[in-house]
C-alpha cells in the first residue's frame, strides 16, 4: 500500500491544481481569479480521491466549491468595479517575493522529500467504514474540538454580521449604502 499506481490521474490532478492556482494569483481580472479557484479546488478534491479520502472529496466539493467559493464570487462581483483590471494587480515587491517563494518552495519540497518517512502498511478502510469512524470520533473522543469549531463558526457569523451591517444610527457622516456604491467609485 505504499504507493498509488495511477500516475496519469495524479499528474492531471496536480497540474490542474497548480496551474489554476497560478492563474488565481496572477490573473488581472479579479472575477476570473475567483472562477479559476473552481478548477483548483476540484483538482485538490481529485487528489483527495487518489488518497482514498472519500469523505473529504465530498466535503471539499460541497463546502469549498459550494459554499466558500460562491461567497467569494458574490463579494468579487459586488466590488469588481473598484479595481481597474488593466492596471497591474500586484505590488512593487512582486518580483523579489516571487523569486523568494520559488526558492522557498524548492527548499521546503527538498526538505520534505529528503526526510525518511516510515510508510505504514496498514490497510486503507473502505469509504463507509472510514466515514463511520470519523462520525464516531466526532461525537466521542473529538467531541470538544467539534463543539469548539461550532463556537468558532458562531463567533465568526456574529462578527461578520456586526461588521457588514450598516449603522442605522444617525452617523456624523452619511455612509454610502451599497446601492450607491458604483456611483462613488474612483475612476
Amino acid at each position: 500500500m505504499n504507493s498509488i499506481d495511477s500516475h496519469l490521474p495524479f499528474l492531471i490532478m496536480s497540474a490542474l491544481t497548480l496551474g489554476s492556482a497560478l492563474v488565481v494569483v496572477r490573473v488581472r481580472n479579479i472575477v476570473h481569479a475567483g472562477f479559476w479557484l473552481l478548477p483548483c479546488f476540484l483538482g485538490v478534491a481529485g487528489l483527495y480521491a487518489l488518497l482514498q479520502a472519500h469523505f473529504f472529496v465530498v466535503v471539499q466539493v460541497l463546502i469549498y466549491v459550494g459554499a466558500i467559493l460562491v461567497l467569494m464570487l458574490f463579494a468579487l462581483m459586488l466590488t469588481q468595479d473598484v479595481m481597474n483590471p488593466n492596471k497591474p494587480q500586484t505590488n512593487r515587491m512582486s518580483l523579489p517575493i516571487g523569486v523568494f517563494c520559488i526558492v522557498f518552495a524548492a527548499g521546503v519540497a527538498a526538505i520534505l522529500t529528503g526526510h525518511q518517512w516510515v510508510n505504514s502498511n496498514a490497510v486503507i478502510l473502505p469509504a463507509n467504514v472510514q466515514t463511520r469512524q470519523l462520525g464516531q470520533a466526532l461525537i466521542g473522543e473529538y467531541a470538544l474540538p467539534f463543539e469548539i469549531a461550532s463556537v468558532l463558526l458562531l463567533a465568526a457569523l456574529v462578527g461578520a454580521i456586526v461588521l457588514a451591517k450598516s449603522e442605522k444610527e444617525p452617523a456624523p457622516l452619511p455612509l454610502p449604502t451599497l446601492a450607491a456604491l458604483p456611483d462613488s467609485k474612483p475612476e
Binding site: L18, V25, L47, Q89, I97, C101, A105, V108, A109, W117
Partner: peptide
C-alpha cells in the same frame, strides 16, 4: 506515486498561495 509526490504538490500550492497573499493588491 508515493508520499513525496503529494508533498511536492502541497508545498508548491502553499508557496503559490503565499506569493499571492504577499503580492496581491486586491
Amino acid at each position: 506515486m508515493n508520499l513525496s509526490d503529494f508533498l511536492v504538490v502541497s508545498s508548491l500550492l502553499f508557496m503559490i498561495g503565499a506569493y499571492g497573499a504577499f503580492t496581491r493588491k486586491n
